[in-house]
Simulated scan of single mutants.
Amino acid sequence: MNSLQLREDSRRGKRQRDMLWAASDVFAAFGHDLANMQVIAESAGVTKATFYAHFGDKAQLFRAVIEYWMEELPEPSLPCEVNGELRSCLEAVAQALLQQSMHPAFLALTNILLRSNWVPQKRWRQRYRPYQAYLEKALGQSARCSDPVRAAGQFLLLAVGNLDPGTSTLTDESRIAAAVELFVQAYT
Rank of each mutant, 00 (worst) to 15 (best):
D25S: 14
F27V: 13
F27R: 02
G31V: 13
G31K: 08
H32C: 11
H32L: 15
L34R: 08
N36Q: 08
N36C: 14
M37V: 11
M37I: 15
Q38D: 15
V39K: 02
V39Y: 06
S43Y: 06
S43N: 14
G45P: 08
V46H: 04
T50D: 13
T50A: 13
F51K: 03
F51T: 13
Y52R: 08
Y52H: 06
A53W: 02
A53N: 06
A53Y: 04
F55A: 10
G56F: 09
G56D: 02
D57W: 12
D57C: 15
K58T: 12
A59N: 05
A59Q: 07
L61P: 04
L61W: 03
F62A: 10
R63C: 07
R63S: 11
A64H: 03
V65M: 12
E67H: 05
Y68E: 00
W69G: 00
W69N: 00
W69S: 01
W69M: 00
M70G: 01
E71W: 10
L73A: 01
L73Q: 01
P74A: 12
E75S: 06
P76Q: 13
S77N: 13
S77D: 11
N83D: 14
L86V: 15
R87V: 15
S88P: 05
C89R: 10
L90C: 07
E91H: 12
A94H: 04
Q99R: 13
M102C: 10
P104Q: 01
F106D: 00
L107D: 05
T110N: 03
T110C: 13
R115V: 13
S116V: 14
S116K: 06
S116Y: 09
W118V: 15
V119E: 06
P120F: 05
P120W: 01
Q121G: 11
K122E: 07
K122R: 11
